[in-house]
Simulated scan of single mutants.
Amino acid sequence: MELPQIRLFSQTAKIQLNIEQPKQSIEQPPAELDLQQPPAEITYERTPAQLTIDQTKAREDMDLKHISKRIEEFAQLGYQDWLEGMTRVAQEGTELMKIENGGNPIVDQAKRRSERPYRQLGITWIPSANSVSVHFEPAKIKLNVKTNKVINNTRPQKPIHEYRPGKVNISMKQYPSLSIDFVNLKYKGINYEQEI
């Protein structure tokens, strides 16, 4: 039995892509470097240190006195002894003047003159403590620093940039198609038969 058939044949569309890749090149020339650093200007003022050692007192304690000091001490000692002598002579004269009041002033005076004062014994330090005077002034330094700025004449270089964009060409590799075929259909009049 022959059945009427409708046959459909289809062909899908195919697209073809032709791609041209982009190209890019970047080149960076080095910068022209020009740096100068002027040296700093330094000036300073220096006050030297001073060390003063005074050992006059220590030398006096060891009886190594300067001649002017000895003359001054001898003059002071002579003046003191003269005052004490005048006082003693005046006192003894007063005692002898009042001999009538009793007592024995001549014997008393002779006894006083013959007695010497006792010397005191003890430990003494020669030279005495803190007899050397030390004075120190440290050095002083005043610095004046003048800094100079960097002279920068550096010139940067622009990068060399080349770019070629890519391209995409689209074309039809295969067009779509549809074919319809009728099999076992019979004509009835001017139309095909409608019933099967």
Rank of each mutant, 00 (worst) to 15 (best):
I15T: 14
I67H: 08
S68F: 07
K149L: 00
K69I: 03
K69R: 13
I15D: 08
N104G: 03
Q11R: 15
I6K: 06
I6E: 12
R113W: 13
V150M: 12
I106M: 13
A58M: 07
G102K: 07
Q28L: 09
I160Y: 10
I71F: 02
K173I: 02
M172C: 03
K98E: 08
H135Q: 15
K14Y: 05
S25T: 13
L121Q: 13
N152A: 03
V89A: 13
L51Y: 14
L83I: 13
S10D: 07
K111C: 05
T56Y: 14
L51T: 01
I141T: 07
N18Y: 10
T56D: 07
P127H: 00
S10F: 03
P4F: 06
G102V: 06
E2F: 03
R116I: 02
I19F: 09
L8D: 08
N101K: 15
K69G: 04
I126V: 11
N169F: 01
N101F: 07
D108R: 03
I126R: 01
F74T: 05
L83A: 11
M97Q: 12
H161N: 13
W125S: 02
I196D: 10
H66L: 07
Q11C: 04
N191F: 12
A31F: 01
I19L: 10
G103P: 11
N148S: 02
I151Y: 04
D63R: 01
E60A: 10
K142D: 15
E20K: 11
P4E: 00
A13Q: 15
P22Q: 02
F136D: 08
G85P: 03
F136Q: 07
N144L: 13
P117R: 11
G122M: 07
K167R: 14
M97R: 10
I42G: 00
A139K: 02
A58P: 00
V150D: 05
T147S: 03
M97T: 06
P117C: 04
D54Y: 06
L8Y: 10
F9C: 05
K69Q: 15
D181V: 04
P105Q: 01
Q194G: 11
S114P: 00
I160N: 14
F136I: 11
L185P: 05
L17N: 15
T12F: 04
P48F: 00
R59P: 05
P165V: 04
L121E: 11
S171F: 03
I151C: 02
A49Y: 14
G189D: 04
L64E: 00
D181A: 12
I26C: 06
R46H: 15
R46T: 15
P30Q: 04
T87M: 06
A49V: 01
T87C: 03
R46Q: 15
K57N: 14
N18I: 11
H135E: 14
S179V: 09
P117V: 07
Q24C: 09
